[in-house]
Amino acid sequence: MIIYLRAGGQLREKLKPDVDHYTRKVEIDGEKTIAEILKDISVDSAFVALIHVDGKLKDLSFKPSDGQTITLQPPVSGG
């Protein structure tokens, strides 16, 4: 199945977007957690501060379904 990972900030460069400036299309075999998907594409989950899908907070154990867009929020800590 196909899912879409979206990221801004410094995480965007690590994600290597290929759909648009922020989004990477990822093909996965069967059900996988976000943690497993990030490992497969060599993105260190330590740089992911928040994960959200359709306006709801998720965590690294979330298993996306076909066609879903998952937003990965980088650490936002400045002031």
Partner: peptide, 26 residues
């Protein structure tokens, strides 16, 4: 709460026990 980084900014108001707190989120 408020925080910024590059092109992103975020904020909320935490007032537990009526709401979650910052540590519930991060």
């Amino acid at each position: 709460y408020g925080a910024i980084n590059e092109w992103l900014g975020q904020l909320s108001l935490f007032n537990p026990p009526q709401s979650a707190c910052l540590a519930c989120l991060m």
